[in-house]
Computed example of a mutant assay.
Amino acid sequence: MPGNSFGKLFRVTTFGESHGPAVGAVIDGVPAGLPLSKEDIEFELSFRRPGRFLVSGRREKDEPEIISGIFEGRTTGAPIAVIVRNTDVISSLYEEIRHKPRPGHADLPFIMRYGYENWDYRGGGRSSARETVGRVIASAIAKKLLMLTDTIIAGHLRSIGEVELNEEPTFEEILCSKYSPVRAAKKSLEEKFTELVMRAHQSGDSYGGVAEVVVKNPPAGLGEPVFDKIKADLAKAIMSIPAAVGFEYGLGFKLARMRGSEANDEIVVKEGKLGWKRNVAGGILGGITNGEPIVVRCAFKPTSSIRIPQKTVDLNTMEEAEISVKGRHDPVVAIRGVAVVEAMVSLVLVDHAIRSGVIPPVKLDKEQAKVIQERWERYKALCRPTEESQ
């Protein structure tokens, strides 16, 4: 199956199916000398892990096993392979789906492309969001490498259903939202989101949502026009996420309703450096990063697997049928989707940073490794809840 790899110099290949023995990733192009541990990867995986309050009840530990590319705690320059074993699989819940494709899901398109006899119906197989484990594994490495430029990536949910954020959060609030069960940057919004998700769970329905990711301190000058513009690569990366239905950056579609006199952003001097007054463009102009914070958003559709009965066709009889999807599914896929959007943004940025020479492509020296590790430890410590607050 082509299309399983992403990136040019920092290249990621994901593998595995929802109910197969394991999922994971092979990451090639990581410079030698990067301090990397299982715990680094676990930290990022913890924010997309199922089995928590308000998300899928599938209880996976998501414990990574590094099987190549690391020696004595540092990358060697060889491909890094990491697997996560699937330990809480109940394939019997999907027997009905075997002959009744789910409305809104990838079941029927996969059958049309690869043939009914070759389709892995268990949990959606390769089309399941379980595949994104590999992306987040790779993002732990990407995010850590980006510490060399002091670049930090943070995401949150701007909306679930029709409930939207009505005030702009600080970057620190966005960063801390990773510890919110609904990825809300504001406490008041967390309560509203929680009520909505509980309602969806109880009724057997689902909601869509919009995730926003902000990149602090991105290197200026990333992006290779014409076809490898940073915005183009971000769009492809984010739209490759399961259930993603829309992408925008900066003011996005709002700009289509504005006049040039409103949309053009004044160039100013900030702390002795050139910059833009309002960051209307979300850190990207001409397909090149301009040093301002990068702001991107991803719209997620409602989870397709719902308990409410829906019409479909029984493939055994080719007659109209009804299906109520059983199983353990997210009432709002966008909640765990935030971590995946963060992951894809990090993969694009690190690939372009290596391509432009901002990050060394072959090896890091000891001082660079030290700086990365110190900044990484600070990043992991930010917003970490105390035992009393949990």
Rank of each mutant, 00 (worst) to 15 (best):
G3F: 13
L9A: 05
T13I: 08
T13F: 15
H19E: 08
A22C: 15
G24W: 12
P31H: 11
A32R: 06
P35D: 09
S37L: 14
E39W: 15
L45V: 12
S56Y: 03
R58S: 09
R58E: 08
R58Y: 03
E60K: 14
E60N: 10
E63M: 14
P64K: 12
I66W: 14
E72Q: 12
T76P: 02
T76L: 10
G77N: 00
N86F: 14
T87M: 06
Y94T: 04
I97R: 15
H99T: 07
K100L: 15
K100N: 10
P103S: 07
H105A: 08
A106E: 09
A106L: 14
D107M: 03
L108D: 01
P109V: 07
I111C: 00
I111R: 07
I111D: 00
M112Q: 03
E117S: 05
W119R: 08
R122S: 10
G124Y: 10
V136R: 07
K143F: 09
L148F: 00
T151W: 08
L157P: 09
E162C: 02
E167Y: 13
E168K: 15
E168R: 15
L175F: 15
C176S: 13
K178N: 11
S180H: 10
A184R: 07
L189V: 05
E195K: 14
S203F: 06
D205W: 04
V210F: 07
G221M: 09
K231C: 01
A232K: 00
I241C: 03
P242H: 15
A244C: 08
V245Q: 06
G246S: 07
F247T: 04
F247C: 04
F253Y: 11
F253K: 06
G260I: 01
E262C: 11
N264R: 12
V268L: 14
G272Y: 15
R278W: 11
V280C: 04
I284K: 00
L285E: 03
P293V: 12
V296Q: 05
F300H: 02
K301A: 08
K301D: 05
S304P: 14
S304A: 15
S304I: 12
I308V: 09
K311L: 11
V313P: 06
D314F: 15
N316V: 02
M318W: 11
E320L: 13
A321V: 03
R328I: 11
G337H: 10
A339C: 11
V348P: 02
V350S: 09
D351L: 04
I354M: 05
R355K: 08
P360K: 10
V362L: 08
A369Y: 13
K370T: 06
I372F: 00
Q373R: 13
E374L: 12
E374R: 04
R375D: 00
E377Y: 07
A381Q: 06
E387Q: 05
E388A: 14
